[in-house]
Design a protein around this nucleic acid. Structure first.
Lengths: 147, 147
DNA sequence: AGGGAGAATGCAATTTTATACACAATTCGC
DNA sequence: GCGAATTGTGTATAAAATTGCATTCTCCCT
């Protein structure tokens, strides 16, 4: 059975090339020596969770449904009673705002620069616990939870 | 123009109902008194970032691109040599940053509050022209360009 | 007011995608 | 190993989505 093999190839192609139709995906697979019909591709794409999105130039492009990395968030480290959150450039204030908005017990306040923000945790609270509550593992305020 | 109205209705429908074709979406809009052709829906869905995914039961279903909270942008008005940009709560600094980053000729600088930012346009430049260059009609810094 | 640029939209044709049906291949329980 | 059930795939076709072109609508400027 080469279904597995074929789908792996599809994953690779979708990740690396700009493909926007099953017909051209089929051609790409042909070039790799994999022969398959369009109908099967329709089923494969459904199974693999490949969707048709819009790329930066406004054209259509296949992509995977789930999002690898959350939008703005880069990292979140604990140092003493501080949380040091790194974000995409310019996004720190937005993320800080969201954190404030959450009104987490133990967060005294936040200060945001351009791509970094500090959240000050009150004495008597555990910064690690706060980080956990932020849900950094799976998402958080300014970024979406993956499922 | 009821494009805005229509697209808002589409958002509501996509969020609350299980729709899997433009034809049935069209029907749903009809019931709300909004008349539109399938071709326009195709364009709307592309613009709104609606994708076709697979739901829990294995059927197709429209949904929003994971990443879609991107459009922080709410509106952009011109007043004299100022652009007044409204954004989602807390997002103004992020959008201002993106605008700065674009380095548009004629933009002297930006000041961001919480959900509003001002971009100051230099004398001798046309604020409307700047707005056009921002691509506000079809996208912009913190939101996706479509066309 | 009048004109023009760009946006929005419909229509029709085309392209792309999904699926019903038939059959082959594989897996499973005995 | 054998038949039954499940899974995989192609073919043909139906269904759905996209797009070129023409037209209309909206602003904005003079």
């Amino acid at each position: 059975m080469n279904k597995k093999l074929r789908q792996e190839a599809i994953v690779r192609i979708v990740e690396t090339e700009t493909i926007s139709s099953q017909k051209s995906l089929r051609k790409a697979l042909m070039e790799k020596g994999l022969s398959v019909t369009q109908a099967t591709l329709s089923r494969d794409l459904k199974e693999l969770g490949v969707i048709k999105t819009v790329d930066d130039e406004g054209g259509y492009k296949y992509a995977f449904r789930e999002n690898r990395r959350a939008p703005f968030f880069r990292s979140c480290e604990v140092s003493g009673n501080l949380l040091v959150v790194r974000t995409d450039a310019g996004m720190a204030p937005a993320v800080a705002y969201r954190i404030d908005e959450m009104g987490l017990a133990g967060v005294l306040g936040t200060v945001a620069g351009e791509d970094t923000l500090l959240a000050v945790v009150a004495d008597g609270h555990d910064a690690r616990q706060v980080r956990r509550e932020l849900g950094v593992r799976g998402g958080g305020p300014g970024w979406r939870r993956n499922r």
